[in-house]
Design a protein around this nucleic acid. Structure first.
Lengths: 215, 215, 215, 215
DNA sequence: AATGAATGAGTGTTCATTCAT
DNA sequence: GATGAATGAACACTCATTCAT
C-alpha cells in the first residue's frame, strides 16, 4: 500500500516503466485496430491480439473497453497538441494577423499529419467516446485567446473577451478540421487568407490606431 | 364491405393508414430508446419492446436496424428543416445584417426545440449514421448563400462566393449547434450580435453605393 | 356440412376444381422456389409469394410446410412414374435382356428430363422429407419384378424371387440415378450394356435352354 | 509450475489435451443432438447445452455450425473406414468370390455397428452436408477395384475396368447400406450369397486358365 | 375463402469480462 | 503478472403459423 510516489523526483521504478510501455503498446494496437476494422468492429479481443497479449491482460492496464478507446483518442489529441505547440513555439513574438495566420497554418499542418485517424475520430466515434482531452484543450486555448484579446484588441467593440474567445476557438477548430476532412475546392492559401481575414475583422485589428470601416 | 377504391388519387386505404401509423410508432420508439439507452445500447429488440410490438414486426416496416435509426434521424432532420423554412419564409425580403440575424434567430429557435435529441445526434451518433439529409442541406444552403453573395456583396474582397459560402455555412451551423449544446455563459442576444457582426464583417457589408438588383 | 361426395361418379364441383388448381399452383411455386433458393432457404413465405397468394392461404390447402415440400417431391415422383410407364407401355411384349434394356433406357430418359430437380431431391433434401411415393414405387415395382422372375427365370439358381427383386430394384434405381447425377466418364450405351449384362447374369437368362457358364 | 516444454516432439501439452477432449465432447454432443432431435432441429445452442458448455465456447473449437456437424459426420466416416480397413487387412491374400464375400461381410459388420447413426446420415442429412470423406472413399476404393480388375479378371468381357469399378463400388455401397437400414426379410447369409453371385457373375470369374501375377 | 399483419420462439454468432491456473 | 478458456447475455434477424378482418 505504502507505494512511494516517485521517490526521487522524476525517476520511475522498473515496474512502472514496464507498465507504461505496455499501456503504450495497447494504445498503439487500439489505434491500428480502429483504423483497420473501424469503430463498430473494434473489439477488446482484437486489440489484445493486435497487441500480442491475451484479452485478460488488457484489464491489468485499463478498466474496460471504453477506457482503451478513450486512451487512443487522448493520445492522438496529445500528439496534435504537441505538434501545434512546437510549431507555434517560435512564433511567440507575432501579433495580430501574422499570429492568426501562423496558428491556422500550424493547426492545418498538425491535422494533416494523420487525416485517416482524424476522420475516424471525427466521423466514426461517438463524441462521448472521445475522452476529455479535446474539451480540456478547447478550454485552455479559449482562456489564452481571451487573455490575448483582453490585452491586445481595440476598444471599439463591446463584447467580452471570453465571448469572442469562445466563438473564435470553436470557429477555428471546426473549420480547420472540416477543411482537412472535406477538402473542398478551396486552395489552402485561400482558406488561410479567408479565415485570417474573418478572424481579424471580427476581433478587431490589434492596432487601435488603425482606421476601421464606418459601421 | 363496400371499401371505396380510392377514387381520388390522394386518398389512402386503411392499410396504408395503419402502415404509416406503425412506421411512426416505430420511429418514435426508436427515438425514445436512443434517448434513454444511447446509441450503443439501442438494439432492434429494445426498439420493438418500446414500440410494444414483436421483434419480427419491425421487419415488416424496415429492412434492418440501420434503416430504423436512419429514419429516426431523418425525421428529426426533416422537422428541423421544416421549422427553419417556416421561420425564414417571411423574411425573404431582408438583406444584409437583418437577413443574417433572422437566419441565426431561426436556426437557434429550431435547434432549441429539441435540445435533448440534438445532443444525441451530434454527440452520440457516429457521423456516418446521420444519413445524407444534413449533408444535402449543407450543400443546398451553401448554394443559396453563394448565389446571394454573388449578387449582393461589395466588390472590395476577392474571394469566390463559393469559398465564402462554404466557410459561412459551416461556421453558422457548427457555432449555433455548439451554442445550444454547450450553453456557454453568453446571452443569446450577445451571441446573435457577435455572430452577425462576424459574418457581416467577413462577407463585407452590402455595398450601399452599388446598385442592387430590383427586388 | 352435407357436402355431396362427387355426386355423379367422376365429376367434381367447381370448388373442388378450384382447389385442385390452387394445390397445383402451390406445388409448382414450391418447386420453383426449391430450385431457385435451395432447400435451406425455401420458406413458406417465399412459396406463398411465388404462388402469388398470401402466406395464410397456404394453410387452406396444406397442413404445414412439410406437406408442401412432400407434395412437390411427390408430384415429381409421379411425373417420373408416368414418363416411365409411357415409355414402357409399348415394350410390354419384350422379355429378358431386351426388357431390361428397355427399362433402363426408359428410366434414364425419365431421370434426364429434369436433372436439376433430381439433384435437388437426391442431394439436398433429407430423405425424411421425400414423401412416401418413392418407397411405394419401390415396393410396387419390386412386386412386379418378383412376379416376373417367378414366372420367367431359370430354375438353376435358388434365391427367392422376392430377394432377387429387392436387390435388382434398388440396384437399378440407385445406379441409374447416380449415373445421371455423377455423369462418370462412361458412355450411356456402355452403361446400359453393362447394367443389362449384370442384371441378366444375376437373375439368370430367361431361357432355361441357354447354357450357363460353369460355376 | 515446472511445465515440461514437450522435449520429445510427440508429447502434447495439457492445453492441447484439454482442447482435444473438448472437441471430442462437442462432437459427441452433436451426435447425440442429431440423433435425438434430427438434422433440422440440431442447433448450435442445443449442441452447446448438450455438451454442457456455453454457446460461445463452441466457437473456440469450431468456426461455425457447419463445421461442427461436418466433424460429427467425419468422425463417423472415419470410424467406418477404420473398421472396414481392420476387417479387410487379414484377407488381403484372397481373390475372386472369397474376396468379394469378405468385403461384403466386413462392410456389413462395419455398417451394423451403429445403425442408428447410419440411418441419420443416410436418411436425414442432405448429401451436401456429408463432407467429402464419403466421396473420397468411393474414389479411392473405386481405384483399387479397377486395379484389381485390370489384373485379375478374365478377358471374356470387354468393359473398361474403370467402368466396372464405378458400377461395382456404387452397387456394393448402396445395397449394403440399404440392406442394413431397410432390413428386408432376407437373411444376411442369403444377401451376401446373392451379392457375391451377382458381382462375380458381372466382373467375370477370375479366369483360372490365366496366369496370375505372383502374390 | 382469402388475407396479410403480427407473432415470438428461435437462429447462428459475438464479445466484454472473469478467474482458475 | 500473465494467461486464455469459458462465459452468457445480447445481438440482428427469420419464419412457420395464426387469426381478426
Amino acid at each position: 500500500m505504502a507505494r512511494s510516489r516517485t521517490p526521487t523526483a522524476l525517476r520511475r521504478t522498473p515496474q512502472q516503466e514496464r507498465s507504461r510501455a505496455m499501456v503504450e503498446r495497447i494504445i498503439a494496437a487500439g489505434q491500428r485496430v480502429l483504423l483497420r476494422d473501424g469503430y463498430e468492429k473494434a473489439s477488446t479481443n482484437r486489440v489484445a491480439e493486435e497487441a500480442g497479449i491475451s484479452p485478460g491482460s488488457l484489464y491489468q492496464y485499463f478498466p474496460g473497453k471504453e477506457s482503451i478507446l478513450a486512451a487512443v483518442v487522448d493520445r492522438y489529441s496529445a500528439e496534435l497538441s504537441t505538434r501545434l505547440t512546437a510549431v507555434l513555439a517560435d512564433r511567440l513574438d507575432e501579433r495580430g494577423p501574422a499570429l492568426v495566420r501562423s496558428t491556422l497554418d500550424g493547426l492545418l499542418d498538425a491535422l494533416e499529419e494523420n487525416v485517416e485517424f482524424l476522420r475516424l475520430v471525427v466521423q466514426e466515434l461517438p463524441r462521448s467516446r472521445q475522452g476529455s482531452r479535446t474539451a480540456d484543450l478547447e478550454q485552455r486555448i479559449g482562456d489564452l485567446v481571451a487573455a490575448y484579446l483582453a490585452i491586445n484588441r481595440s476598444q471599439t467593440r463591446g463584447a467580452e473577451p471570453a465571448t469572442s474567445a469562445w466563438i473564435v476557438v470553436r470557429l477555428v477548430e471546426h473549420l480547420t478540421v472540416q477543411y482537412v476532412l472535406e477538402r473542398p475546392s478551396i486552395s489552402r492559401a485561400t482558406f488561410v487568407d479567408e479565415m485570417t481575414a474573418m478572424i481579424v475583422a471580427y476581433v478587431g485589428p490589434p492596432d487601435a490606431t488603425r482606421t476601421r470601416a464606418p459601421s
